[in-house]
Each structure stands twice: as structure tokens, then as C-alpha cells.
Write a protein that binds this DNA or RNA. Structure first.
Lengths: 342, 342
DNA sequence: CTACGCTTTTGCAGCGCTGCAAAGCAAAGC
DNA sequence: GCTTTGCTTTGCAGCGCTGCAAAAGCGTAG
């Protein structure tokens, strides 16, 4: 394989210094038209391409940010990523994505060991298996914004929605529909289940606010928030002596799984069991029935996260870690309202 | 911000040369236990982290591969990515993902200008808006494997399934069900629609093989392969004087959109209209009804792509570009077979 | 005691680029 | 004519690491 064409090669051909070639290539400052043209021609003749690696090393920055998510095939994340990518591109940053599979080791490696920190100027991170401590004991030189789960300890920003309020609102919607036995699918009563626990809290608060007490056996834990989890949990609920007549699912995927189980057992949604989801993914707008859901403002979450991250990157002294809330709203669809006659 | 801790700093503290520190850090060759320990201690004391950028520059490789897809929120891609990431990790490669939005400029930038080639040792690429020519005029120094759309020109590998055969099989399934007016949703009769056209070819071949002629007004083009496209195309089909009694959709998303339209118009699937999809995404296994679909062996596609890419990376002379076919099969579910009584 | 072969350690150059500061140069000012 | 000013261009060091080849150390054989 032929050797790389370098700045120096171009410089030689154009009869200028390599520094001037660099200036031309980067569109820098003051270069005479004549020089610029000569260099340009040499660049083309040799097919010169800058070596990004070398540039990054010399500059000490990479112009790239990483977005780290647990699962790419979770629509919530992939939809959110869309917006993040667009927001970052606007600011001239390239986005690279990494999937952790929710593996705590992998997650830790990314932010703690910091060996890859120089590949990125900053990271937007959605941790799953990481406890608060691991976040605190990280490499603090890497600008960090967290999405979703954890709350901030002051050394990074956290962007999310008000899970408690949203969950409360979703549950109240079911109560107002006159449902008596409301289940919740998706609790995670352990250290890494912060977000799930906030939703359970909202679920309880909604009951309390109406003077009700939720039935504990209707609160179901699931390891993840996906379709099979929802289907399985729903099956379990239906096998109870007194099955629920409504379900609040902690994600739309869970809701989709739950609905699948309901319909395949010959039950009707929402007549027999009303279902509310969470996330407002596209699936829920095209499923049968369509899903009533909590819709977080993903666009806002994404732009806020990018904005804060870029601020952190450019700021010489790290700004205080903020707790940022994007708005959300309840969108009522067929899974609670029934099919609107067309 | 404090200066980076470098190899030299560690070397000084440990009283050895920086090259020795490098050897220890990389677990190289022959280092006495005594030296190793001393260095190790110094590394920890200073909190030394190797600078990946510098290492990559010196080595001329990055240990990373990129996977470039048009849309991350398309489940087919995100499911495929899962497998690619896993396969690459096994070989010690880190995977970074880039989304092009199907923008031809962006796609071209990635493989043609080559300025980022050094950030990656190779690229697995699923182009959308790129014509064959752009693929041929690319920077040939970057090892490349193409997924899906285009076919190989000999300078890269192409991994996919046999679209024609698969589509033929899907259509034959509908014919065998006794359907008379079979529609196809997803044709793309223009340069960048190769894959779509292969599916249309299979659709026609199936008819021909049974001595039938497809109705041209039942072959609908769509700009993309997503839910709204499917919903809209289906609406159009239902407004025809003689609407179809079966539909072959070029992706499961299209099928989901089509089904949504059917059900919301009070039609039954499959009794009134049978639907076949393509891709076998998880949605189709949990939707109502579940979707009969062509299931490509994604695992095989992913591992083959990674395998070939790594071969290209390590090979001093580029291997011949291969056309590789992963197996597929037709999975019959409710959208053509009806609900199995439980 | 020297020579030899092996393991361990070292020094240096260089990956390709940019930051910095100085040098060169042409036009303008005195 | 000489200095000043402001724009262009240059040279050099260095980002932090690794490849290479030579040097040093060390045990064993002659």
C-alpha cells in the first residue's frame, strides 16, 4: 500500500511551507489568492486528505461527541438519538454512538477508565447498570451529560422529564376512567432502578391523591422494559384471582407486549383492560389499538443535552451540574379511550 | 486543567525508560516482574491513562470500525446493529455508529472524501441515496463491506439475502392462499432503489410462475419503508375500484402501517386482506395481528460482514469483492394464517 | 577469563498535524 | 530614503505514543 500523502508532500509540490498548506486546507486566515490556488491544485493532484488522527492529537480535541445508550433497538433511544445527532451536527460536532448492552462493566469503562476520553470531547450517557457511586468516581475530565436514569451529583448535568408527575398523571387518567384494579408493570426495586422507582412513586401518589390504596400484588417488577417483559408480566396478572382492569406500563414496549397478551387471550382493550404506556414511540401510534402514553418532549431533551454538553466542553471551569426537566404530556389514544368511530 | 500524565512522567517516577512503561502498559513481551511492579505502582500513583489518539497515530490503526446506516430508528437496522456490535467486540474491535439520514452527501462524505478514514480501520455501510458510481469512485484505501442495497463491483464485499427469491416466496405464499388481487407496497423505480426493484422482480416472478399477471395499479411506490408510507399506500389501495385482497409489503414497518389502515377502516386481517412483511423485526411478533414475514438471518449477515471486514483490514492486498448471501425464510403468522385458537 | 546467546531495557526517530512566535515582505507614512 | 504597519509565510517544537535496532545485562559454555 502506498504511503499516505502528507502536508509536506503537498508543500513540496506547491513550493510553499507545510504550514501554509495547513492554512489553506483549514480555510484559515490570510492566504493570498495566488498561494491558495497553487496549494489547492497540488492538493488535488496528489489526492491529499488530512489525517484526522494527527490533527486531533495536535489540537487536543476531536470534534466528536459520543452518545452511549444501553440498547439501540429500543425505539425510545433510537428516536432520541435522531434528535441528538441533528442537534450536534448543527454545532459542527459529529456524533458517534456506542451501545453498552446495559453491561455495568462496559458502562464503567466508558466513563471511568477514561482511556477513550480523547476520542471524544464529551459524552451524553444513558446509564442502566451503573450506580450513583460509579458516576461520581469517574474521570472528571470528560464532560458528561446524563439522560434518563440517575440524578445529578453536581458534577454533571442530568436531563429528563418529571417521572413522578408523569406517572401520577398517567395513573390518574386510569382512575378517572373509573377503573378499580389498576396494575403497574415495570417496577425495579433495586439500586439501579431509580427511574422505575420514580414511576412507582407517581403511581402510588395518584392513588393516594384519590384516597385509594394500590394493591401490592398488582405492582409487577420486570428486568427490562421491553415487549417480552410486558407480555410475561401481563400473563402473570391475568392469572391472578382478581386480575386488573387497567395497567400502567413503564414503557410503550411493555404496553405493546401486555396488549399482545390481552388480545391473544381474547380480552378487549380498552373495554376489558385499559392500558397506558410511556415514551410515545412510533409503534404506539400505529399499533392496534393505538397506545395512550406519556410523551416526553424528546426534541427538547436532545437539544438541551447537546447544548449543555457543548457548554461543558468549551467551558474552562466546569459549570455546576444541573438537574434539567423537559416537558411531557399525556396523549390519550385507543388503548384507554377506545376506537373513535371514523 | 492539569496537564495530561504521560508515559514519560510515569517513566521518571518509576526510574525506567518511557519505552519500558509502554511495554508494561501494553502487556508486551519480556519485562521482569520487578520492573513490571515498579511501573505498575507508578502508573497507579499518577493515575496514568494511555492517550488513545497518540497510540493510534503511532500505530496507524484505531481498533475501531464504523457502521454507517441511514436511520437508527428503523428496527431492522437497530436489530442488525446489535449483532454487528457483538461480533466485532469478540474480535477486539470497538464499533461506532453513524447515521446518515439517507443523505447522499453525508454518505458520500463518509466513503469518498476519506478524511475520517483513519478514525476507523474499516466500515460496514448500508447506503441508501448513493448510486453505484459513488461507491466505485470512493477512497479505496478504506476497507468496506456493504449491507443490503447495492451489489458489489468487485472492490468491496456485499452481504445480503436473495431478495428476488425471498420476495417470490412471499408472493407465492399469498397466491397459494388463493388470493386473487395481490398488491405490492414499496417499489422504488429509480437508480437508488435497487433492493426495492429486486423485490418487485420477485413479486412478478411469483405471478409468472403461476401463470398470472400482476395488476400494475397494485404496485405502489413509496419513498421510504416506514409505517406512515405503508399506511398511506394502503389507504390509496383501498380507494381503488377493485381493492386488493392481499398485500406484499417490502418491510415490516410498511406492513404495520398498512395493517393499521386496514383495521381502522373496519377491515379484517387476514380475512379481508392478507399481509406479508419483510425483515422480521420484533414489532411484527407482538403486533395484532402478528405479521407473516421474510426473516433474513440477521445474525449471519452481521457475523459475515464483520468477518469479511476484518479480513480486509488485515489483508495487505485487498481480497476480491464478494457477493455474499445469508439465508432467509418465510415465517407464517397471523396476518396471513389468521389467529390460531389458543 | 572470554565468548556467546539470550532476555531485558533503552534511545531515538517519526506518525502528520498545529500552536506559537519570528521572519519576510509590500504598502503606507514621515 | 527610512521607518512603521499589517498582512503572509515560515520554522520549529511538540502532541504522546510506538517501531526499530542497538545496547546492556546475565547466565552458561568453552
Amino acid at each position: 500500500m502506498r504511503r499516505e500523502v502528507t502536508l509536506r508532500d503537498v508543500a513540496e509540490l506547491a513550493g510553499v511551507s507545510s504550514r501554509t498548506v495547513s492554512n489553506v486546507v483549514n480555510g484559515y486566515a490570510n492566504v493570498t489568492e495566488r498561494t491558495r490556488e497553487r496549494v489547492q491544485r497540488a492538493v488535488e493532484e496528489l489526492g491529499y486528505r488530512p489525517n484526522v488522527l494527527a490533527r486531533n492529537l495536535a489540537q487536543g480535541r476531536s470534534g466528536q461527541i459520543a452518545v452511549v445508550v444501553p440498547y439501540l433497538d429500543t425505539p425510545y433511544f433510537s428516536e432520541l438519538l435522531q434528535s441528538v445527532i441533528r442537534a450536534a451536527r448543527v454545532s459542527g460536532y459529529n456524533v458517534l454512538i456506542d451501545q453498552t448492552d446495559g453491561d455495568p462493566e462496559h458502562e464503567r469503562a466508558f466513563i471511568a477508565d477514561g482511556s477513550r476520553r480523547l476520542l471524544f470531547d464529551g459524552v451524553i450517557f444513558s446509564p442502566l447498570g451503573l450506580d450513583q457511586q460509579a458516576l461520581t468516581n469517574r474521570d472528571h475530565r470528560l464532560p458528561l451529560v446524563i439522560l434518563g436514569e440517575r440524578s445529578s451529583d453536581g458534577s454533571f448535568d442530568h436531563v429528563g422529564i418529571d417521572d413522578v408527575a408523569a406517572s401520577r398523571q398517567a395513573t390518574e387518567h386510569l382512575i378517572d376512567l373509573g377503573r378499580q384494579r389498576i396494575a403497574a408493570i415495570g417496577d425495579q426495586p433495586y439500586a439501579t432502578g431509580e427511574a422505575a422507582q420514580r414511576r412507582t412513586r407517581g403511581f402510588r401518589e395518584a392513588h393516594a391523591a384519590r384516597g385509594l390504596t394500590p394493591r401490592e400484588d398488582l405492582i409487577i417488577s420486570t428486568p427490562r422494559f421491553n415487549r417480552p417483559d410486558g407480555a410475561q408480566a401481563m400473563a402473570h396478572l391475568l392469572d391472578l384471582a382478581e386480575p386488573p382492569d387497567a395497567v400502567f406500563c413503564y414503557s410503550d414496549l411493555v404496553a405493546l407486549g401486555a396488549i399482545r397478551t390481552l388480545l391473544s387471550r381474547g380480552l378487549r382493550v380498552p373495554e376489558d383492560v385499559a392500558v397506558v404506556g410511556y415514551d410515545d414511540i412510533e409503534d404506539g401510534r400505529f399499533s392496534n389499538p393505538t397506545i395512550t402514553t406519556i410523551s416526553p418532549d424528546k426534541e427538547m431533551i436532545a437539544t438541551t443535552a447537546v447544548e449543555r454538553l457543548l457548554l461543558r466542553i468549551s467551558s474552562p471551569t466546569p459549570p455546576a451540574g444541573l438537574e434539567l426537566r423537559a416537558p411531557h404530556r399525556l396523549i390519550v389514544r385507543e388503548s384507554t379511550a377506545g376506537r373513535t368511530p371514523r
